[in-house]
């Protein structure tokens, strides 16, 4: 089956079991890099987005500029975004992370803000009446109630990040995108297809994982529906 002159690698077939076994380490490394780049960017994005959304909610004047800037950032195509960051970060993984953070910001800020705005005024007033200060109100009332909307944004941001990491191949840090890029230059069909399918699988797995986390974090939404 794996006789060198006539196996699926030599025939350059799309689907090739021999590719999976012979390039296992390369694939694992690429998946690892892909996951690291995605996770770091989404987490950094989240750390920046939460205070921005809270600021936009608390200080009415800041909502328009915050949303405006993040929307403009989101309009810039990914390849251009990475290229614009080149003078700042050079050919590095940081460049890819920085670009992805800027994209996830838009989705996260918009969704967290929508979640915070959807907290009923009566709920906030009830909490204030119980003597909650602004910080306690935010942490124990507003943010938990904004969780479903925030998690929806987090899921979209994560799935987008998984697919955008591939463009990082232009600077050599694209996770599975590197394999797609190299496979394109050598017309290596099995490599391109395998890496592409893995990308989609990672995106779906991440989405399902976050959906599970959301269910765990917001048990009351299930109770209400049942």
């Amino acid at each position: 089956m794996t006789a060198p002159p006539n196996d699926c690698l030599a025939r350059n077939e799309w689907i090739c079991g021999a590719y999976l076994t012979s390039r296992r380490q390369i694939l694992l490394d690429a998946v690892g890099q892909h996951l690291r780049l995605t996770a770091v960017s989404v987490l950094v994005g989240l750390v920046i987005a939460v205070p921005l959304a809270v600021l936009a909610r608390r200080r009415r004047w800041s909502a328009a500029p915050v949303l405006g800037v993040t929307t403009i950032l989101y309009t810039i195509p990914s390849l251009a975004m990475f290229s614009l960051l080149l003078p700042l970060y050079g050919l590095s993984a940081t460049l890819v992370v920085a670009g992805l953070v800027l994209y996830s910001l838009t989705l996260l800020v918009r969704n967290i803000l929508a979640g915070l705005r959807a907290v009923p005024e009566e709920t906030r007033q009830a909490a204030r009446g119980l003597g909650y200060g602004p910080i306690r109100l935010l942490l124990t009332v507003e943010l938990p109630l904004a969780l479903p909307a925030a998690m929806a944004g987090l899921r979209i941001a994560t799935v987008s990040a998984v697919s955008l990491v591939t463009v990082g191949a232009i600077v050599g840090f694209g996770g599975l995108g590197n394999l797609i890029y190299a496979g394109m230059n050598t017309y290596f069909k099995a490599q391109v297809l395998t890496a592409s399918v893995l990308c989609v699988l990672i995106a779906v797995a991440a989405d399902l994982l976050l959906l599970g986390v959301q269910r765990l974090l917001t048990p009351w939404t299930r109770a209400a529906r049942a």
Binding site: V159, T166, A195, S196
Partner: peptide, 15 residues
């Protein structure tokens, strides 16, 4: 559509 990388589709089509 969001889960599928545009770059991957482009390269797949190219081959």
């Amino acid at each position: 559509g969001r889960a599928v990388p545009a770059f991957a589709v482009l390269v797949l089509l190219l081959l």
